[in-house]
Design a protein around this nucleic acid. Structure first.
Lengths: 231, 231
DNA sequence: TTCTGTGAATAGGTTCACAGCT
DNA sequence: AGCTGTGAACCTATTCACAGAA
């Protein structure tokens, strides 16, 4: 649903070397299965059927099995899936075997909330830097980090080796910071800024907008309320 | 992408009175057009073509025109769309004509960030209450609100007339709070808790998970990096 | 002529149903 | 017998291409 790479150039030689790519919709759900598996693991469960993993993930069992089939055949017919084993293979398919280094730009309420959110570290994402343009905030502590000056964006990204950036800043400055981050070599960006950012092909941008989410809820709520059954 | 109403019960009488419903994918994009239109309005632009509105929204012009066709025919052939007029009609179609009253449960970093985020009020969402279970936090001020005790959830939701709830709390307590909120009559919930919540049919639940977003980015980043062209 | 609105064609995603392994 | 893995059928979404209004 986010702008994926918009360069539909086919494989050059034509020789079908295009490794098996997982459909976007399946990728999104695989992260959910991963979370459910982690919960099961914590509960000491070590085997699970497609039926129950699907229920725990809020999808149908056929969708789950189809999704897993894109990753490979890691189940045992007549038995189910070994939780740890499946967990490891999904993580590998998603590229979560090595840690990713994340920098947050914007140390406002949202930036701070993200920096302190424990859920990242445990899932392979290290927050390595947090920036702000406000000199009152620069130098203060957020979690285990000290806020860097947004003016030093490029050198700090370089030094920390950040390969992902989260934009938690006002719409007005988002495009500018986005451009600088890309120029600094980052190719994966998650934006919370409520604007449409323009990025060159090859850069991966995902957006989360809370107002959008509420508006979608409003649409459904309105439909549910309205009688509209004027027979 | 979020669990929509999972009750596929057809219209009871069978008499097709099912007003024109907008496809989910289109609803999500309509909120984006709305944002772009608001920006144009602020810039003093009063007419726009499908081509340029599409570009400002990051979609193709055919997608935009098809989406708008679900709402109605509010453009002028050969000319384009009147910004204000189109804005009003999309807002109406999404149920944004009257204000929605939103309560936030969880006054941690994220809850506070949401409560203080100005973007809601301007788009028809009034934050009417914020709750926390921690007695150290209850009574403190967040934005223009005072934090209510989560123990008083039901009466405060009732008194404030909240019809939407945002869950910004730990996974461990999310299902419990979710159940109470639904029992109190709320049918629209936006959850930031990294768990799969179970809700009865008729309740609208949307989920936002930051770790999921990063994992999806990781997948694409990995694919881009990997040579995998072992010819 | 220009640009919207929309049927037709294509692509993508989900569900079904069953073959195949344990 | 039980449950996974997967082609085939179905449904949703996007793109194309052009008819039709200004």
């Amino acid at each position: 649903m986010t702008s994926l790479d918009s360069s539909p150039e086919a494989v050059p030689g034509g020789a079908g070397t295009a490794a098996k790519q997982i459909p976007p919709a399946a990728v999104a759900r695989l992260t959910i299965y991963l979370r459910a598996l982690t919960t099961l693991l914590a509960e000491g469960v070590d085997r699970v059927s497609s039926e129950s993993l699907a229920e725990a993930s809020g999808v149908s069992s056929s969708t789950l099995r189809k999704d897993l089939s894109y990753v490979g055949s890691y189940g045992t017919r007549g038995v189910g899936y070994e939780v740890q084993y499946l967990n490891r293979h999904i993580a590998a398919a998603l590229g979560l075997t090595h840690d990713w280094k994340v920098a947050i730009v914007g140390a406002g309420n949202l930036g701070k909330a993200l920096a302190r959110y424990g859920g990242f570290e445990s899932r392979g994402f290290d927050i390595v830097a947090i920036f702000d343009a406000d000199q009152m905030v620069v130098g203060s502590e957020v979690g285990w980090l000290r806020v860097s000056d947004a003016a030093d964006l490029e050198p700090v990204l370089q030094r920390t080796g950040a390969n992902m950036v989260v934009l938690a800043l006002p719409a007005a400055v988002a495009q500018d910071v986005c451009d600088r981050v890309i120029a600094a070599g980052v190719r994966s960006i998650l934006s919370f800024a409520p604007v449409m950012l323009q990025v060159p092909p090859g850069v991966n941008l995902r957006k989360v907008d809370m107002a959008t989410e509420l508006q979608i809820l409003a649409y459904h709520a309105q439909r549910a309320q309205d009688p509209e059954d004027a027979d």
